[in-house]
Design a protein around this nucleic acid. Structure first.
Lengths: 334, 334
DNA sequence: CTGAAAGCGCTTACAG
DNA sequence: CTGAAAGCGCTTACAG
C-alpha cells in the first residue's frame, strides 16, 4: 500500500496540486481560495489521512525542521536530561531532534557533522571537542546556525551556553574554608577543556584568596577513559596518604568512585571529612550522610540553548553571538 | 556559499551526472566506467568535499537510512543506555537514529508515529504504550519494519525483544523464601502492562509454589505519575504497619523512594529485613549495605533489537516475527 | 479565484 | 564505455 501524494488529493478534489499545497500550508486565505474549495480539500485530507512527504518538502524548501544534536554520550545522565528538555521545547515549535554521540572521538565527531550536513539539518547544537574546529567553522561559514553548550571552543566564535564552572568550584572550596578546613583536595580529570580547567582554576583561586598555600599533591588528575579500578586505587592512595579534611570531586562519576573508596576503607564523612561532588546524582541524596553537590542548571541551559537556536532559525539574518553563563547551585546536604 | 551538487561535479569532470552517480554509489565497475574516469571523478569529489544530498537521495530511492526510536523518556537511564547501544550498532551499518519520547501520552505517541511516517524512516523501534495499536497496525500494513522492545502489545503481531520479567520476579521471591522470609512485600506500580504485571505474577506464583499464603495487604501498587512525596508516604505506611521481613521493588525508582523511607524511619537492611530492586541503579552498589538487584540485560536487548531490524531491512520480504525473551540476572549484594 | 510548469538533487531504466 | 531524460513529491513565481 503506497502512501498518498498531493496529486492523489488533488485528483480526488478535482483541483490542482497548487491549490492543495496552498491549503496545506495555510496560504489559502492569502491566495484567496474559496471557502468551498478549502472545506472540500480539507475534508478529503482528513478522511484519507494524507500526510505531506517531508522529504520532498525538505528538498524543495531547503530546510528539514530537524535540529542536529551532537554530544559526547547520550547515556550520560547530564546529556540525556538535557536532550530530553531540548527535545521537548523543540518539539513544541515543530522541530525534531536527531542526536548522535561522539564518544570523545574526533573522527566520529567529524563524520557526524558530515552526516548531519548531508541530511540538511536546520541547526546544530553541539557539545564540542577539540580537533573539530575546522569542520565547525565550515558549517558556520555556510550559514548554518551552530550553538555550543556545556563545552566551548575558544577559537570559534559562535553562541555558547554553559554553567559557571569557575564560580561553582570557587564557592565549594570557600564553603570548605568557612568550615575551617585546611587540607582540601581536588579530584578531577586530565581532559584539557575549559569546563574542567575552570573547576581547577576556581579551586586554586579560592585557596589563594584565603591565604591557603596550594599543594600540588592534593590535586589528583584522573586519566580520562581509564578503568574504574585504577581510579579507585588512585583515590584510595590520596585518601590514605595525605592528611586531607575535605575533597571536591570535579565530576559525579569521580565522586561515585570516591564514595566507593570511602566505603571500602571505612572512612566516614562527617565533621572532620567533608565532600562536595560536581553534578548531582541520585545516589548522593540517598547516601548516608547525604552528599553535598554542585548542580548544573540543566533546565536553564536547555532553555537558553533552544531559545537561541529558535531565534536564529526564525531570523533571516545572522544574529549576534551570545555567551550565556549560568550560575551553578551549591546544595549542602548532611 | 551554496553546497555543491552532483551537477557541479559532473561539470568539473566533464562527464554526465549519471557517470558521477554510478561512481558515488560504487556501481562504476558494474557499469564498466573506465578507470581513468573513475579516478578523475573521485579526485574531484575528494578535493571539493562534495557530499551527496541525502534528502534528494531519499526522495528518489524511497528510503532514508534513518531508524525511528520511540520510547517513554530518553532521560530515563534504562532507555538512554539502550538508545546508546542501539545508536552505536545502527551507526556501524550506516543507519542513523532519530528518537522521541512519548512521556506515556497516547496523543504524543500517535503524533510521533505520524511525524516519523512523513519523514519516511526506514524502520521503527518502539517501546509501545496501550492505545496506539491501530496506528502501529497501519505501519505494519504499509510494510514498515516495526519492532517492539521492553514492552509488548499482545494484540499486535510483530517482533519483540524483552527481559523475562516473570522469572526475574519469581527468582527474587524464591531467594527470599530460601532465606526463610515469610512476610514478603511487593512494591509495584498500577500500570497495566505486561512487563509490570508479569512481575506481579512471578511474585504470586513463587509464593504459591512454596505454600506461602498470598496476602493482598503486602502488595502496594503505587499510582503512576504521582508525586514522590505521596509514594514515600505510602511505602512508609507499608513498612511501619505490616510486619514484613522482605520486599521486592518492581522498578528502580520505587526502590529509590523505598530506600529514602528506610533512611527516614531508621530501619536497617540486614538479616531480618531484605530488599531486592528491579533494574540496577548506581546508588544500589554504593548503598550501605549494597542493594541486591535484578538486572535487565541491556546489551543483549539492544543487540537483538538491532539484529532483527537490520535483518528485516536487508531482506526484500517480510520475515517471520520473533519473540525474544532474555533472562534477567539476579545480583546479590550485601 | 485557480492552474501549468519549473525545479530542488538525486537514481536508474533505456538507448546508443 | 557513457549520457539524455524521466521522475520521486513537493513549493512557488508567474500567468490568466
Amino acid at each position: 500500500m503506497k502512501s498518498l501524494s498531493i496529486k492523489d488529493i488533488a485528483t480526488k478534489a478535482n483541483v490542482s496540486i497548487t491549490t492543495v499545497s496552498f491549503i496545506i500550508n495555510g496560504k489559502a486565505k492569502e491566495k484567496s481560495i474559496s471557502e468551498a474549495v478549502i472545506d472540500k480539500v480539507q475534508k478529503i485530507i482528513e478522511e484519507s489521512g494524507y500526510k505531506p512527504n517531508q522529504i520532498a518538502r525538505s528538498l524543495r524548501t531547503g530546510n528539514s525542521n530537524i535540529i542536529g544534536l551532537i554530544i559526547e554520550d547520550i547515556s550520560n545522565s547530564f546529556f540525556s536530561r538535557i536532550a530530553r528538555l531540548i527535545e521537548d521545547k523543540a518539539y513544541k515549535k515543530g522541530y525534531k531532534i536527531i542526536y548522535s554521540s561522539t564518544e570523545n572521538s574526533v573522527d566520529k565527531a567529524k563524520e557526524l557533522i558530515n552526516m548531519f550536513k548531508s541530511r540538511k539539518v536546520d541547526a546544530y547544537i553541539i557539545s564540542p571537542i577539540k580537533g573539530i574546529e575546522e569542520d565547525i567553522q565550515m558549517l558556520i561559514n555556510d550559514g548554518n546556525p551552530v550553538i555550543f553548550f556545556d563545552r566551548n571552543l575558544p577559537e570559534i566564535s559562535t553562541s555558547y551556553v554553559g554553567a559557571d564552572h569557575f564560580n561553582a568550584s570557587y564557592q565549594s572550596i570557600e564553603s570548605f574554608i568557612n568550615q575551617g578546613k585546611k587540607n582540601i583536595a581536588l579530584v578531577t580529570t586530565d581532559i584539557n577543556v575549559p569546563q574542567i580547567t575552570e573547576r581547577y582554576d576556581g579551586y586554586r583561586k579560592a585557596l589563594e584568596d584565603h591565604n591557603i598555600p596550594y599543594n600540588d599533591d592534593l590535586v589528583l588528575k584522573i586519566h580520562f577513559n581509564q578503568e574504574e579500578d585504577e581510579t579507585i586505587g588512585q583515590i584510595k592512595e590520596l585518601f590514605n596518604d595525605k592528611n586531607i579534611d575535605a575533597v571536591l570531586f570535579a565530576t559525579n562519576y569521580l565522586a561515585i568512585s570516591g564514595l566507593k573508596v570511602l566505603k571500602k576503607i571505612n572512612k566516614k564523612i562527617g565533621a572532620d571529612f567533608s565532600v562536595i561532588a560536581y553534578d548531582d546524582h541520585e545516589a548522593f541524596e540517598l547516601h548516608t550522610p547525604g552528599i553535598s553537590t554542585v548542580q548544573q542548571p540543566l533546565e536553564e541551559i536547555a532553555e537558553n540553548v533552544i531559545m537561541l537556536i529558535l531565534k536564529q532559525l526564525s531570523s533571516k539574518t545572522k544574529l549576534e553571538d551570545q555567551q550565556i553563563i549560568i550560575p551553578a547551585k551549591l546544595i549542602i546536604r548532611e
